[in-house]
Amino acid sequence: MLPAVFMSLAGVMVMLGLAALWQSLRSAFGGGPALTGDVNTGLPERAALLAEKRTLLRTIKDIQFERELGKLSDEDFARLDQAYRRRAKAVLALLDTDIEPFLARAERDIAEAMGESGEQGPYRRGGSTRRQKKGKGKGKGAGKAARRPAGVECPACGVENDLDAQHCKACAARIAPLVCPSCATENDPDAKFCKSCASRLDGGDDEE
């Protein structure tokens, strides 16, 4: 009896393994269901911010409790509390402003994927958008096979513009990537803060 059990277990396992392998190969060649990602956890900067927020909130609670326990003098508590709150507020502000451009991009990607699914799988546009953004030769873009579209859609109104357009011809929204003045990172056109160094982008936007 037992030998048969083990043999069937092995059989099940090998089936699972082959199925997974097939899925893996299919994905590698661009097949499979469309990719979805959770904005809250999928984006590294954002995940880090969320984690930091949690840590800060916990720390603030913790030092309150420690003061009640008498492990922290009032003066120390005031100083610590102030420092942590200052940082927490900065994080909250970043989290608030951070999400808009991603939502816009997601909408755009979805629209594109829905529009021309088929020939090269669902990631083609994602890849090409990235290439467009990092166009100046940072060169980590997706496969060379992905062809560029004829134009670029405005993130705000969806009208197709020329590839080199800086602003939308229909609604004047910004299309070209925003280069951070302090660290030169390319950000999404409508970013308010730099995703890398968090400097303000919307105020000091003086390159035009």
Partner: peptide
Amino acid sequence: RPHLLRSARF
């Protein structure tokens, strides 16, 4: 490359 990442996961 998200599709390769999924491939790696499988």
